[in-house]
Design a protein around this nucleic acid. Sequence first.
DNA 1: TATTATCTGATAATGATTTTCAAAATCAAC
DNA 2: GTTGATTTTGAAAATCATTATCAGATAATA
Lengths: 150, 150
Amino acid sequence: MKLTFEKYIASQGLKMTRQRGLILEIFLKKEGHISPEELYSLVRKKDATVGRATVYRMLKLLKEADIAREVDFGDGFSRYEHKYGHAHHDHLICTKCGKTMEVVDEEIEALQEKLAGRHGFSLTSHEMDLFGLCPECREKEARVKRQPPG
Amino acid sequence: MKLTFEKYIASQGLKMTRQRGLILEIFLKKEGHISPEELYSLVRKKDATVGRATVYRMLKLLKEADIAREVDFGDGFSRYEHKYGHAHHDHLICTKCGKTMEVVDEEIEALQEKLAGRHGFSLTSHEMDLFGLCPECREKEARVKRQPPG
DNA sequence: TATTATCTGATAATGATTTTCAAAATCAAC
DNA sequence: GTTGATTTTGAAAATCATTATCAGATAATA
């Protein structure tokens, strides 16, 4: 992955720096998605001199280098996840506690292609986010209904 | 729809105003999605005294009243669409020209429920956006490849 | 009509992200 | 290794969509 990035950097006439190396290293360690702010905060723990703008710039680069993908749950924060050992997936998102799960359903993936094809589209990517209640929050909700406060 | 809104307004102890009526009327006329800024601009054509904040506030109300739904293509703009004669649907989005199509696939919808169920989630909503090239842009792209410029 | 709470528009504030810019760092060529 | 052109960096300012504030206007109700 670091190699992939360095290759990309070189191909674009850009330069490898200490900051980029550090951000990449920390980003790759994180499984699942991470927001720019979270990443910034993790990076600062290792090197407090790194600026926020550098993190944002790096995330953009990682996307261009096809090392990261951006996901958007429509809550005003952007999130990124690396692709290393981390194939495409969709998300189950609990609207109560915010927990997310990564899921894939090959049958759905295939039907998406078919659906697009019926309309003459050729697909390059998709985002599917399923919102609802996770098992724990469903359970909690059920409890509350059984025994209302007061 | 206007009735639905007035009922909601009343139920919440809110008030019906000239501005709200106008914004609702214009919003309902628009098929497909519209951004707050677009809506604001349309409203201003009819009444240049209406403020931007009022449009934003009204969109939030419409969502609460279950008359509008918010869609998010992850490009930094929010968009709203009314539900009148306009059931749930997903989107096909051309990444080249920006054209969007509304689509539904009942088979996919059913599989989404099953998928969520397998993980113990109960779904309340979902957003599925399929990105790719529309027929026109595919055609254009093919032409370019056949006959490179120069 | 008087009363009282809600609304409105203008404007300031917010907050994530981007841009700017001068100083620092990289890297290819010497 | 030094040089020098070019890119990068961090801090701070700028941007831009959206939200909050607030004093005056307006709607609903008695």
